[in-house]
Write a protein that binds this DNA or RNA. Structure first.
Lengths: 190, 190
DNA sequence: CAGGTTTTCTAGCAGCGCTAGGAACGATGT
DNA sequence: ACATCGTTCCTAGCGCTGCTAGAAAACCTG
């Protein structure tokens, strides 16, 4: 009876350990280093244990993405709350967005670059994803004007995403990042 | 004497065959299908032949990218030339950009998403890359105003790139693509 | 302590990028 | 015309990948 609940708890803890370890390993050495063998060694279990929790490596990455989106949404929310005035809010959120991608590049890649088997722009999308997008919607809302809000948000999001990814992959000079970000906001919202 | 030149020519032809086949295979079945074994089978040679032309798989992809950039630059140039008036030119080039990414998604991914070992935002960048970016610069120039031209171009490019990649990876609803593109241009250039 | 269930591990498959070593080919000198 | 020498090419194999079947170990229960 009680043993059953303990087992379930331990199992849940181990599942969380897998997700956390995968994320840390990816952040430390890149997703290429996150092999099932390596991951199993890090959590001090054998390989097949991973498959008793997740369908495969992609499912582990998807779990990392979902948890990452929760954090991401929180950070965007904090940035949105601490600023006042529509313009300042946009600046604050955009900076938080870029800072997140800069601080956790592997996580960001998994969330928005790698092909993870998750529904995105549909009602079935995980709550965390919708929450993160929702923060952007709320950021854009006061400045939307007559444009349709979701589409405008998607467009602004795309621009931020483009800046972040092209810089991270070495296609843009890093030293001009702040200039580009300021430029984008000015062109977009004035 | 003459045999030597014939051999060199045949060798060059085979190298081109490798690049072309890699690109077609990637476009038809995705980059995951482009394994060295599969590629060797397609060109009807054994695996090690690939390594007598290229250092490794990454080098083959890099060659595909460079050739792809040449085509890309040409298409952008054509789009820029056929339109008149700064605004119309931007619309034309932006549409050509998005159409290229839509028509050749695997190539586009290799060019701007995958980590290919090529210098980008530096003087050592391949001419084809600089040519493609140059087309965007010329597109932006008449509308630059007091902003610095290269940085403004990078920012606009990033926005296009973000739109294209997020849509292609299923993060954005495809049916709103034209609306987003129009929105971006209006927000950016008026 | 024995029985039965659940959990975990060992070992292996097919495929990956890449490479060493020998076989087969083709141009050359007699 | 033939043997020799270089070059080109392929066979076979290494260590790695994600993933899985079946044996082994650990565990709770009676």
């Amino acid at each position: 009876m009680a043993t059953q609940t303990r087992r379930e708890r331990e199992r849940a803890e181990r599942e969380q350990l897998i997700v956390t370890t995968a994320r840390e390993l990816a952040e430390a050495e890149g997703w290429d280093a996150v092999t099932t063998r390596r991951l199993a060694a890090e959590i001090e279990y054998s390989q097949p244990v991973l498959y008793s929790h997740f369908k495969g490596k992609d499912a582990i990455m998807a779990a990392v993405v979902v948890q990452g989106c929760e954090e991401f949404a929180e950070e965007l929310r904090a940035a949105r709350m601490k600023a006042e005035g529509a313009q300042e809010v946009v600046v604050s959120v955009a900076n938080a967005y870029a800072a997140f991608a800069e601080r956790l590049p592997a996580l960001y890649d998994a969330m928005f670059t790698h092909a993870v088997d998750l529904p995105f722009a549909t009602p079935e999308a995980p709550a965390a994803l919708k929450a993160a997008f929702g923060e952007l919607v709320e950021t854009v809302r006061p400045l939307a004007g007559e444009d349709e809000l979701p589409v405008l948000t998607e467009t602004f999001w795309s621009s931020l995403h483009g800046l972040v990814t092209l810089m991270r992959s070495g296609r843009l000079r890093r030293e001009d990042h702040e200039v580009r970000l300021a430029l984008l906001i000015r062109r977009f919202w004035s």
